[in-house]
Structures are given as C-alpha cells and as structure tokens.
Amino acid sequence: MSDVKPQDFSYFPGCSLATTAAESNRSLMQAARILGLNLIELEDWNCCGSSSAQTMCRNLSLGMAARNLSLAPAGRPLVAMCPRCLHYLRSAQQCLQADPKTRAALEEKWGRPISTDLEIIHFMEVLVRYGLDRLKANARRSLKGLRFVPYYGCTLARPPRLAKETYFQGEMEHILTALGAEAVPDALMYRCCGSFLSATDPEIVTPLVQEIIGSAVAAKADCLVTACAMCQLNLEIRNTNRAKIPIFHFSEILALALGADDYEEWFVRHLVDPRPVIQKLSKAA
C-alpha cells in the first residue's frame, strides 16, 4: 500500500461509457483531473457480461466479470461509473470468495492472480471519501438556479444480493446541492428506465419514460441528472412527450461545476439539446 499514492484508482469504463456515452467518460475524466484523482483505465478490460450473459449462462457471466478482476492491480481500488458494471463486478467477486476452486481454475487459465479483497467502488464513493468541503473548494462555476431531479434508476440503490454494500441514495443531492444546484426530489427518481426493453420492446418503455419525464416536468425541474449511462440514453430516446427536458450524466454536471470548459463537446452528443439550460445558468451567474 505504502508506495501507491492514495489518489490512484483503477478505472473500469464499461461498454456504454466507451462508446454511446463517451461524453460521460470525457466529463468524468475532466472532473477527476481537476480534483487530482488519477483514474487509470484498466488495461484491456472487457464487457462486464451485462444482463445478456447473466441470462444465458452463469459461467459466462462470472468469467467475463472475473477476467476484469484479474486485470486489476492489487493495492488500488477499482472504480466503475456504470451501476450495472459495478453490480456484476461485485457479484463476481462475491462468487469467487465463496468458490475458491473456480477462482483457482480461472487464475490458472489466465496466469494471473485474482484478488478477492480488491475494493470495487462506484465513483460516487470516491467523492464521498474525497469530502464535500474539499470538493466545494474546487468549484469554479456555480450551479445556482439549476433545478435537477436526481435520477438514480434501479441498480445503484437496490440489488438485495449485495445488500451489505453501500448504495448511494441521496449522494447526488448532497454533492450537487453543495455546488449550488437545487434538488427536486418529488419526481420518479428510482423508477426503472426500461433497460434493454428499450431496444427490444420500445412500446413497453415509452409510456414508462413518459411518466418519469412527466413527473420531472410537473415538479418544474430544469433537467434530470442520471447515475447510469443506459438510463440517460433511454430517457432521451424514449421520451415522446412534447416537453423535452435535458438528461445529464452526473459526471457532466460535476465537471461543469468544477470549471471544465470543453462541455460543448459533450453536449452536442445529446439528443435533447441541454445548451439552453446551461445558457440560462450562465446568465443567472
């Protein structure tokens, strides 16, 4: 531990942040850079397995997640941004803790040790440890006047199998209100976004998304802030309400407050243009 700097973290981006949600990845990197957190991308990471591997074959699901654990250097926590990736990585670790035989077989297969006490945490946990006061001291842009719904979706707050792990109910509010924004909690913050049904059965998902967005509009929020890249995408693409309301990745709002200036590059990738909300914010400032 001693020769590892405390602000070094292994970082698992996952498929969404590497592609469709590249703007979340980019803004996260900016925020981390400003805070002096060194997120080191896990070398040659693979997909966590996601719901599809979990559905079709337990061994495959375990193997996909475990390979990532085998790539993580010991001594520094593994950080994920996507709640589902976090969930599958943690589940695999629990599985391997209980099943040393499988663990040994995988270690032999890959010729790498798999640490079962590797710390696997969400980026939100990194911020909690960093401390709200230090975070505030780094703020460069006030979020005053931004009314946001903290949208957690389902995974960051639930899976009972991992009930002993920390979940981050309330954490987005703590952080963003400390940076000046105003939380609007009376909306559907934990209602599931529809997950992969958005791809297979949009007619099931569209009314759900409309309900979520409708609740945010009724609560007079300017935007929703999501903890999950898939939620962000589903809320954008399946909203057929006339009222369009921008959906931000949590990392975008965080990086914005910390003074990152390449936000135009993130925002042009949104399907609902968030720039009017941001302009309103800068005018108020």
Binding site: S51, C154, R158, P160, Y190, C192, S195
Partner: peptide
C-alpha cells in the same frame, strides 16, 4: 429486466 423494485 431485474430492476429489483419487487424484491425491495
């Protein structure tokens, strides 16, 4: 989809 609303 495994959103765990029921479980919770």
């Amino acid at each position: 989809v495994g959103c765990h609303t029921c479980s919770s």
